[in-house]
Write a protein that binds this DNA or RNA. Sequence first.
DNA 1: ATCTCACTGTACACCGGTGTGCAATACTGG
DNA 2: CCAGTATTGCACACCGGTGTACAGTGAGAT
Lengths: 199, 199
Amino acid sequence: MSTESSRVRSMNETRDRILDVALDVLGENPDAGMGEIASAAGVVRRTVYDHFPSRLDLVRTLTERAVTEMTAVLNEVNASGAEADATWVEFIARLWPVAHRYRVLLALRRGEYGEAIHGLLGPVDELLADLVKRGQDTEVFAQHLPAGLLGQVAYGVVFAIADSDLPNGTFGARAATITSLLMLGVPETRAIALVGDQP
Amino acid sequence: MSTESSRVRSMNETRDRILDVALDVLGENPDAGMGEIASAAGVVRRTVYDHFPSRLDLVRTLTERAVTEMTAVLNEVNASGAEADATWVEFIARLWPVAHRYRVLLALRRGEYGEAIHGLLGPVDELLADLVKRGQDTEVFAQHLPAGLLGQVAYGVVFAIADSDLPNGTFGARAATITSLLMLGVPETRAIALVGDQP
DNA sequence: ATCTCACTGTACACCGGTGTGCAATACTGG
DNA sequence: CCAGTATTGCACACCGGTGTACAGTGAGAT
């Protein structure tokens, strides 16, 4: 199956490079134009349009990537059968690099492509709500908010912290994990114990 | 000093109406243009420019309004001398309507006017950080994050919940208060007790 | 050696929003 | 009634970003 001629390979390489670079550039400035993305990818603007007929196609592809990676993580951690709070910790730990890479989606969710992105993010929201629901049913998560909204806000916070440029390293991940646990209703001692295990 | 002729009064009225309407329209769609704002205010686009020479002026004025109202609230609740967590509850209760009105600033903070808004919001951030710091020093708030960042994230959550259109009524305010208390490290029982007093 | 095709370079049309100019109009105070 | 002025209803220029057209170039495929 690996019968890819060097031509199509290099074509896929530029395509991937454009995607990667687009994530960086848009991460810096969500309003960056196709021109900026193109030059950052070492390519001319016209070429970007050869791979992605419209700006929306680019964003959509990026979002699909994110959804794929996130659902993968969510499914894996959900399969472990651990308690909901421990699962959450594992989830954030593994989600963190992804969330940081795709932090731009948080900003892009508003305005223009918001609807498209929101639609694609549906599956993630569902899996997330399921996890929170499970936590609420087993009394490890608070019930002051409906599961769906609580999940949204909690991982919204994770993204927000991933976005806010604080002294990075594992610090941000730790902060995001503890904060989200707290707002999920996990007692502080328990939260610290949970993240203490795997810093 | 109340020597304002009916002419300048009606002029101020349109000016204020434009501001009020702009808050609504931008609240619905942060990318709304001057045209939309104008027609929503029952006025022609050109007139808006007579009152606000540029779009930035409009946004700036809006932000200044918000800052004024917010610092007023913050100063008042801070003067009560109550515990930091009780103060926070009072703060959110009184901030809630304001936060909901000015929710658009959350979105506007990114992109284009972000810098200007951020600058104007400085005083609010300081007062907020002071309050959180006080809570941390008196051991009622958690210390897993520096006061400044913790305050940002906490009231970011309040704005986020104010933004998310959930079955409104006092429900949203209650949810926002409890959630922010939780993430500030206040135990769930205490949090519920605090908001139980003044629902 | 020639062909193919990804990529280049430059030009263009289009769009929506911003901000300005100016004559015409309506409304208010003297 | 007249003067002043807030508002109107166009006009326009400008800008930046999007998406397209098309001829040209260079490197890998045959």
